[in-house]
Structure formats: structure tokens, C-alpha cells
Simulated scan of single mutants.
Amino acid sequence: MVTLTPIAQNSTPREHTYLQPSVFWSIRQGFPKRLSLLIVTLALAVPLLAWAIVSYAGLVPPMFLPTPTAVLQAGMTMFAENNLLVDVLASSGRVLAGFLVAALIGVPMGIAMGTFYSMDSLFAPIVGTVRYMPVTAFVPLIIIWLGLGEASKVLIIMLGVVLYNAIMIADAVKFIPNDMINVAYTLGGSRRDVLLQVIIPAAFPSVLDTLRVNISGAWNFLVIAELVAAQSGLGFKIIQAQRFLQTDKVLFCIILIGLIGLVIDYGLKSLSQKLTPWADQTRH
């Protein structure tokens, strides 16, 4: 027989502990814009300051780490004398073409995989296997299939991104609550209605975020794509400068790609917030 021990009459109630307010460590409770701007400035200034100290002090030979001034001068020379703007436009066009093809294939595939078990069974083994295969291993085959023209470069960029688009969007669709789908069925919606009016609108913010994240992958595969007999492009300039140990030009092209990617990232983030005002505005 189990006996219950009575609560002592003199027992004191549990003391309540209150969360101490914090500005720096607050969890999704807002953050002062001035402090955010200060942190961003420090995050960019500290590495630049370290680079300047090491390079200007001569702690590293200029061939391995040129000074920021030398890198900037090399970039100005490339724009003025080597038509670097043409290379920027060429690389941007290749990235845009490859990324658009990857989006046109990957987005519908991801929505289908996340919505229908049949499509998940069909595509998941292919996506799960091929995405572990290095794109560089396909370069010889791509050259044989498509030659040395622009199509081969676009295909390399597309292959580097398309499967990640599909699998990330499929996961986003699978996280849509079943209650939303069941309510649509209860209100008389057909499968087509559920797909077009429930699943796609609910997944749309995640689709935009996926594309924003994966466009960085397209730029990462740019140098690989421009190894294929390219005569222009930022990747081509990097490879050309590397052959002659022109580290200042290599660094400038790398920084330029980073700046272009940063502009694209903020542009897509702003577009996402305008097109999906109902979604979480704290996305990064």
C-alpha cells in the first residue's frame, strides 16, 4: 500500500526567478540598430586592420600578401587597362544563366518531392546520390557533350546548385503543418487547390530564402566553369593572374566577387521581405 506524505505546513513556496534583461544576448527580442551597425563595422574593420598591419609591416612577403593599397591599385589598373568590367559582366551573365536554369529545375522538383510521397520516392535516391558527386569530376564529360562554349560553363554552374535547391525546398515543404492541408480538404479543396493555394504560398518564403542562400554556390562554381577554355570572366582573370604570381590581382578579383555577392544577397533579402510580408522578418 502506497502512503502519501502530507505537505509540510511550514513549506515555503518556490521562489520565482525573473529573466534579467539583456540587450546583447536577447533572443529574438529586437536589437538596437546603432549597436548592430557598430558590430558590423567592427566585423569588417578588424580583419582589414590585421591585414594592413601584417602587410605594411613587411611581416609577409608581398608576393604572398600584398598591401591593401597595392590590391586597390591593381584593381584600378585592371578596370582602366584590362577591361575588367567586361569580365564582371561575362561572369555575372554565366552565373545568372546557370542559376536560373537551376531554379527552374530545382524549385518544381523540390515542391514535388515535399508534397507527394511518390515523387519523393522517385527523386530522392537520385538527388541523395548525385549531390555527393563532385561537379569537377563531370567537367571532362561536359566538355565532350557540349564542347567549350558557354553552354558547358552554364551547365557546370547549374549542376553545382540545382540539387541543393531541390532538397532544401523539399524539406521546407515537408515542414508545412498537416493541419493547414486538412483544413483545406475540410473546406472542399481538391488536391490542385491544396497545392496551388496552400502548399506553394506557405513554402514561397522558404523558396526565396533557399535561392538567396544557394546563389552563393553558383558564384563558388564560377571559377571551375571558367576553367573550360574561357577568354573572359573574373574566374579567368584569377587563373590568369595566378599563373604569373600576381597576388594583388587575385585578391582584388576575389574581393570583387564577394562584394557582388553581398549586393545580390541584400537585394534578394529585400525582395523577399517585400514579396512575403507575412513571413518572419528576422531572416538572415
Rank of each mutant, 00 (worst) to 15 (best):
A52G: 01
P66D: 04
L42K: 02
V54W: 00
Y56M: 01
E81N: 14
Q73W: 08
Q73F: 11
T67V: 09
A90D: 13
T41N: 11
M76W: 15
L59H: 03
P62G: 12
L38V: 11
S55A: 06
F79E: 12
N83M: 14
I39R: 06
G58C: 03
M63T: 15
V60D: 02
N82R: 15
L89D: 07
L48P: 02
A43D: 04
Q73I: 13
Q73N: 14
V46W: 00
A80F: 11
P62L: 10
V88L: 14
D87W: 06
G58V: 02
L48V: 05
P61Q: 09
P68Y: 01
P66Y: 01
A70D: 09
A80T: 14
N82V: 13
V71K: 04
M76S: 13
M76L: 15
N82K: 15
T69W: 07
L38G: 08
T69H: 08
T77L: 12
A74Y: 05
L42G: 10
T41C: 13
P47N: 01
L59V: 03
A43N: 07
A45K: 04
D87Q: 10
L89H: 04
V60P: 05
V54A: 00
D87Y: 07
G58Q: 01
L84N: 08
V46A: 03
V40A: 12
A80Y: 10
Y56F: 05
L48C: 04
Q73Y: 09
V88H: 05
L38S: 10
P66M: 03
L44T: 08
L42P: 06
P61M: 06
P47Q: 01
T41Q: 10
L42S: 06
L44D: 06
G58H: 02
L59G: 03
L49H: 02
W51P: 00
V60M: 03
V54L: 00
G75F: 06
G58P: 05
E81Y: 15
V60L: 03
V60S: 04
A74Q: 11
A74L: 08
F79Q: 11
L59W: 06
